[in-house]
Design a binder for these strands. Structure first.
Lengths: 195, 195
DNA sequence: CACTTTAGAGAACGATCGTTCTCTTCGCAA
DNA sequence: TTGCGAAGAGAACGATCGTTCTCTAAAGTG
């Protein structure tokens, strides 16, 4: 025994499960992926799978947590790289542009999962609402730094959400560019002293 | 025999099936409703159900068609009641306001169904894309009447889509009002000669 | 080495799904 | 009345789901 704490040699079973679940859930939806396929994709026995996650709902919640973390980190990296407050707000749409170009993009998993389980699983619904609320809060902070009113933040959030569903359904990554253009207009108007 | 054409005495079995399916699909999602529950809700035998719709996918397509018709009719009624071109564009968001207030509102069924079946059923995916494309075309026509550029129509569509997902997930019908406000701003800027 | 614990492989279980089949009843033409 | 086609009620089927159980091999401990 090398250490008394659990040691991660390559990648832990938990990580492999979450990673495989993320990939499969994103590609085919939550309900279309069975636990057996999860076991095969993760290279883990069913016993261990259920040892780590007692329920499929727990797997889903873990995937959503990971998505939330990666999404937030990627957006924050974009924001941090922007030079000024205005650029920080627009960085959100730059992130969307890159994201929509990803070959694996199949829409926002939070929106998709809410459509599948929102009416059935309260825990999943709450996690999704928390994610969206967190994004809106972050956007509100950025808008406040910019000197804009809270109503502007709400409008910018609508543009981001609309871009995600439009990109998912109609395809094409230009939804992000259109959202960015609209955001620029809304910001300029909100920050113009006259009117 | 009263007539040689099929006579609709009360409501036809087909209508009853589609109406029940619409209500159940909207409330719990497409995959969570079985054909047996559909039979019970429609008051129809399984044999007749499968006689009218050979497949569950056909039921879903029929429900989407009905939704598309009712959605389009309701929006067009709002548009027709507006006095001028600008009001006709804003009528779209007035419709959203009313819609989100409906106690049965559970998000846009097209978005929800795409999340559930978009990756699995090409026919369903195509119907959904056609619905969204039709909305964008109608919006583009209204914007053209207004004298605005096509890019404005795309931006206004993003606001409408974002309002629908936001209202579905975060609840509250104020998403429509926020979208309307943003739309006013975008329209005003696009129609202002200077700049 | 003997023994206990652990974990892997996968069969099995009960539920539910979409779909089909069986059985029975009913309405109606001859 | 007799015979027949249509339709309702619901059992049944095969597949798949989430979850649990069994069996066996391996590994750590005395």
């Amino acid at each position: 025994m090398i250490s008394d704490m659990t040691l991660i040699e390559e990648t832990s079973p938990r990580e492999r499960i979450v990673e495989a679940a993320d990939r499969l859930f994103n590609a085919r939806g939550v309900n279309s992926v069975g636990m057996d396929q999860l076991r095969d994709a993760a290279g883990v026995s069913l016993k261990r799978l259920y040892g780590v996650f007692p329920t499929k709902e727990d797997v889903i919640l873990a995937v959503l947590e990971k998505r939330h973390r990666m999404w937030t980190d990627a957006v924050e990296a974009r924001i941090a790289a922007a030079p000024d407050a205005r650029g920080k707000v627009l960085a959100v749409y730059d992130f969307l542009t890159d994201w929509f170009r990803d070959v694996d993009f199949r829409g926002c998993m939070f929106i998709n999962t809410f459509a599948e389980l929102g009416a059935t699983s309260p825990r999943v619904a709450a996690a999704i609402q928390e994610h969206k609320a967190g994004f809106q809060r972050r956007l509100a902070d950025l808008v406040t730094e910019l000197g804009g009113p809270p109503s502007l933040a709400a409008q910018l959030a609508l543009l981001a959400e609309g871009a995600q569903t439009t990109a998912a359904i109609s395809g094409g990554s230009d939804a992000a560019a259109q959202a960015r253009e609209a955001a620029i207009t809304l910001i300029d108007v909100a920050l113009t002293p006259g009117r």
